[in-house]
């Protein structure tokens, strides 16, 4: 009964046929991929029985008494995320200036330059930046901070450039009409207009950077990831479980706070 009421009498049977064909092709494709990954590429013999797997998994139950030792690395992670974001804020504004079509100083040179930097930053995983910085500067939080800054400046510059492009040209023209120079037009005509959007995006990046910062240590970028790599190497799985719980809690709280603050802003 409901069927009859809802079914769309206008739906073309040819269209239905096309849908089913597309769906069928996709399904066959996915099954082929599944066979490849799950059957051909996986060594089920070596993996052992289900019981053994469950046994290993149970080793990961958090060892709560390890918590106090995770506090300092968690704090470090938070600081790495914070300083990565702060650096990204500093660098993203000039890049956004280059990458905003309406104010870029030399459209033929600076605009593609700005856009190129944004694409590079956004399409490279933070782990890769961390690897490059670690190999140049050695282990520690410094390359981690730089990796985060490089990773998040693209998003910040992109959203800021978009905000600049959507800014009301009226106030910008009014400041131009007073004879102010480019920099002052930017500071008075543009920045006040984009400020709330920018702050919202910075907070958003801060919250994502906490998650990113927690894995940088796996490649030598400092923070809690380093401790995680160590305990995994020494097969202290209970401690690893504890660390995962700690990070997850920190990230969830961070996201909650960031959402609340951004709601307030709007």
């Amino acid at each position: 009964m409901i069927d009859a009421a809802i079914a769309n009498p206008l739906r073309d049977p040819k269209d239905t046929f096309r849908r089913y064909t597309i769906f069928g092709v996709c399904a066959v494709f996915v099954l082929a991929v599944a066979k490849d990954i799950i059957i051909d590429e996986t060594d089920w013999e070596r993996m052992g029985t289900l019981a053994e797997m469950v046994k290993t998994a149970l080793f990961f139950l958090p060892e709560w008494s390890f918590f106090p030792q995770t506090v300092l690395p968690l704090l470090e992670t938070l600081l790495i995320a914070l300083w990565g974001t702060i650096l990204a804020v500093g660098v993203s504004v000039p890049i956004a200036y280059l990458a905003a079509r309406n104010i870029t100083p030399m459209p033929w040179i600076t605009y593609p330059l700005g856009r190129g930097l944004i694409v590079l930053s956004r399409s490279t995983h933070e782990i890769i930046f961390a690897l490059i910085y670690v190999s140049a500067l050695g282990l520690g939080p410094l390359p981690g901070i730089l990796a985060l800054a490089t990773r998040s400046l693209g998003f910040l510059a992109k959203t800021t450039a978009e905000a600049i492009e959507n800014a009301d040209p009226g106030p910008i023209e009014a400041i131009e009409a007073t004879g102010a120079n480019r920099l002052m037009v930017f500071c008075f005509g543009v920045i006040p207009q984009i400020f709330p959007i920018f702050v919202g995006n910075v907070i958003f990046q801060m919250d994502i950077n906490i998650r990113r910062a927690s894995i940088l240590g796996l490649v030598g970028g400092g923070g809690i990831g380093l401790m995680f790599a160590e305990v995994m190497q020494n097969l202290y799985y209970g401690r690893a479980g504890m660390i995962v719980v700690g990070i997850t809690a920190m990230v969830v709280v961070g996201e909650f706070i960031s959402n609340r603050v951004r709601e307030r802003l709007i």
Binding site: G170, P171, E173, A174, I175, T178, G179, A180, N181, L183, M184, C187, F188, G189, P192, Q193, F195
Partner: peptide, 25 residues
């Protein structure tokens, strides 16, 4: 074409931006 997020006084002072030094501005 006022700058909405600045105060009235700052908007009026914006008229001097052409002759105010960049840093002060």
């Amino acid at each position: 074409n006022l700058i909405d997020r600045l105060t009235v006084l700052e908007n009026v002072l914006a008229g001097t931006l052409g002759v105010t030094g960049t840093l002060r501005g």
